[in-house]
């Protein structure tokens, strides 16, 4: 009896999962492989189309750039926050989190204001005479990247602060007594010990950017489609549910591959096995 109870407790959740997640997913994906016979034709023809392929590559490229930029900006920021006193840390964390409390549509509109032809950035550059005619900043890959970094940087910082504040500060000091400058000690000690946090944060940022809809929709426009906006266009505007399903699976598989890849990297770098943080 005692062995069956755990399964019984799991049952409602399991049923919910099967009915509301697995079945709809399979029913969407299945037809892309099967119409009379089993084949990968839908996928092969999707990738053969240079327009589609371009969107796929842009999505990957933007996600990679956003992830890398978030790491570059987030690691030092997180280290700084983790090193402050408890009082300051609370305040800085609240500031970091603050943008996440606002709606992503509003946050994207803020960037439209900043980056538009008559936006703040162009006006500023023109007024100090760096440019004579407005730059095209909005509705470019650049604006998607900027908007996404703004969207996901807090997630990376918060994940990393959690990991970094658990690193014994004496370890850093030990490195210094052994002859490492602050920066060397950071690179040789804090950075390797932060790898687990960087990996988790990067997965969140990468998959977040890959699947985000509002930001690329509002800041990218129709000429800079990402997989998510392309999927929406196919399903809602064109009514092409089959292509939409193909895109959906491509996004899912890409996400899984990337997560697996990050975990492999993590295991290779972090040789300690289980953590003792």
């Amino acid at each position: 009896m005692s062995k069956k109870i755990p399964y019984l407790i799991l049952a409602p959740g399991l049923i919910l999962l099967v009915f509301f997640l697995l079945i709809p997913l399979v029913s969407v994906i299945w037809p892309t492989f099967y119409n009379g016979t089993l084949s990968f034709d839908s996928y092969i023809s999707f990738f053969k189309d240079t327009y589609n392929f371009g969107i796929f590559i842009r999505t990957i490229r933007v996600s990679i750039i956003v992830t890398v930029m978030c790491i570059i900006l987030g690691v030092p920021t997180a280290y700084f926050i983790a090193g402050t006193s408890a009082k300051w840390r609370g305040l800085l964390m609240a500031l970091t989190l603050f943008p996440m409390l606002t709606n992503s549509v509003i946050r994207s509109f803020a960037w439209i204001n900043l980056l538009g032809q008559n936006g703040v950035v162009n006006k500023l550059l023109a007024s100090i005479g760096i440019i004579s005619k407005p730059l095209t900043l909005l509705y470019t890959e650049f604006s998607i990247i900027i908007g996404s970094i703004y969207l996901f940087l807090p997630i990376l910082i918060i994940t990393l602060v959690g990991v970094m504040e658990n690193i014994n500060p004496e370890i850093m000091e030990a490195a210094e007594t052994l002859g490492a400058s602050r920066i060397k000690a950071f690179i040789k000690v804090v950075l390797p010990l932060s790898i687990p946090g960087i990996i988790v944060g990067s997965i969140l940022v990468f998959t977040g950017t890959l699947t985000a809809y509002t930001t690329p929709q509002l800041l990218g426009g129709n000429r800079n489609m990402m997989l998510s906006t392309f999927l929406y266009q196919n399903a809602m505007t064109l009514g092409n549910w089959e292509d939409a399903s193909v895109i959906a699976l491509i996004m899912i598989v890409t996400t899984l591959i990337v997560m697996k890849g990050f975990n492999l990297i993590a295991n290779r770098i972090d040789k300690r096995g289980e953590q003792d943080a």
Partner: peptide
């Protein structure tokens, strides 16, 4: 003079070993 230019050996109360390095790598760090 900053810490890293003093060439003093310090043993911390918490030992402060580098958890990501082996014993050999810890000792060879300096």
């Amino acid at each position: 003079v900053p810490v890293h230019k003093r060439n003093f050996g310090m043993v911390f109360q918490s030992y402060a070993l580098f958890p990501h390095l082996t014993v050999r790598e810890n000792v060879g760090f300096g």
